[in-house]
Design a protein around this nucleic acid. Structure first.
Lengths: 205, 205
DNA sequence: CCGCGGATCAAACGATCGTTTGAATGGTAG
DNA sequence: CTACCATTCAAACGATCGTTTGATCCGCGG
């Protein structure tokens, strides 16, 4: 992604994603980004206007794809008719897993996303809510049908808890140390399996 | 905490905690910190040696107290003999809640802690592991006794998931918007109640 | 009374930050 | 070939960063 064969724009986005994941939005400088992407410093402002514009584009690119896949997976599950709780959770979580396993540093974005939560930035929250709020609402309505005994407030609380756990687990922030004999891919896949089982039990309680 | 009546050292720690929570470790400058604490810029280096030293002391001060209270709560639960899963979870989570409700900006530290996870900094992780790893091990062994059907690997995965959920919920990163009629204290207390119920169900699965 | 030392202060250090400028580059339409 | 326009480039802008310096303050023991 940061190598020749990709456009200047794509190389900047790729390098920014990795460096934002590693050092944070304030901690990663545009000079580090442009050095990593092997492009001129001014290219960032030419293509994205500002550092803030670059940050937003890093989000937009990945989240557009991620939420398209989530809605597609949800639709696939819903039309089968006999969807289980685990199926719906899988439709939400697995696309994030698959993206994190993509070739060109896909694993970095889940950490950028976790950073964004920690940033607690109001502008960013509004951006996320406006562009991707409908995805969450769609999942919530399906959960509501599957858990008729659960009142709305309880459901929202639990989905919130799950969202936090997913973010945390996918970003590999945990204390469970990956064994050197286990690949990063296997580790992430195990995390998803445990997450789904745990979340389903918590929702059914 | 940032007001007269507290020592220079305490005022710096208080202001730093709030600003690190709001803007991150890289995003909050020492000039902002010393301005907020109403002390001279050089006071940071006089009392803490460097910005890194200040960050470590912000952690040490709160975590020492937090984990002392966690172990005390665990001991209180254990000696009663008939401890439930919910009791043990409460011993882990409630001290964090109580600290977040303390008078002098206690709510800031849980967000600083969440930032630290996101930072993914190896030095900081080692610092946390060396100083507070024994607390986690102690809780794990109690959970192991209460959940004899659960193998060690599964237990560790689930505790990891819970730790993530707790961190995110206490830091108020969620999408559940607090109603204007609900105080921040009530909101946090509700979060803990839902967390414990959810986590207990997930562990029993 | 003096003088020592911890604490605080204003001021400046060089480095690095995001951003801007204006010129060079190179492909393409007329 | 010429003219144009999107792109890339080196260089510099002022602002702000963490850190250091040396002077100044002030309470306390001798």
């Amino acid at each position: 992604m940061t190598q020749p064969g990709f456009s200047t724009r794509e190389r900047i986005l790729g390098a920014a994603e990795v460096l934002f994941a590693r050092h944070g939005f304030a901690g990663a400088s545009l000079r580090q980004v442009t050095a990593g992407a092997r492009v001129n410093l001014a290219a960032v402002h030419y293509h994205f206007g500002s550092k803030e514009g670059l940050i937003e584009e890093v989000f937009r690119r990945r989240l557009d794809q991620l939420n398209r896949e989530r809605l597609a997976a949800l639709a696939r599950v819903a039309e089968r008719g006999n969807a289980s709780l685990e199926d719906v959770l899988d439709a939400f979580i697995r696309p994030a897993l698959e993206q994190s396993l993509e070739a060109h540093g896909g694993g970095a974005f889940v950490r950028v996303l976790a950073r964004a939560y920690a940033e607690h930035d109001e502008r960013l929250r509004r951006f996320l809510s406006e562009n991707y709020g409908h995805v969450l609402r769609e999942f919530a309505s399906v959960f509501m049908r599957l858990l008729p005994h659960l009142d709305k407030e309880r459901l929202y609380w639990r989905l919130d808890i799950i969202a936090g756990a997913v973010t945390y687990a996918m970003a590999d922030f945990g204390i469970v140390k990956r064994r050197s004999t286990t690949s990063e891919e296997t580790h992430r896949r195990q995390a998803v399996t445990h997450l789904i089982a745990f979340a389903a039990a918590g929702l059914r309680a």
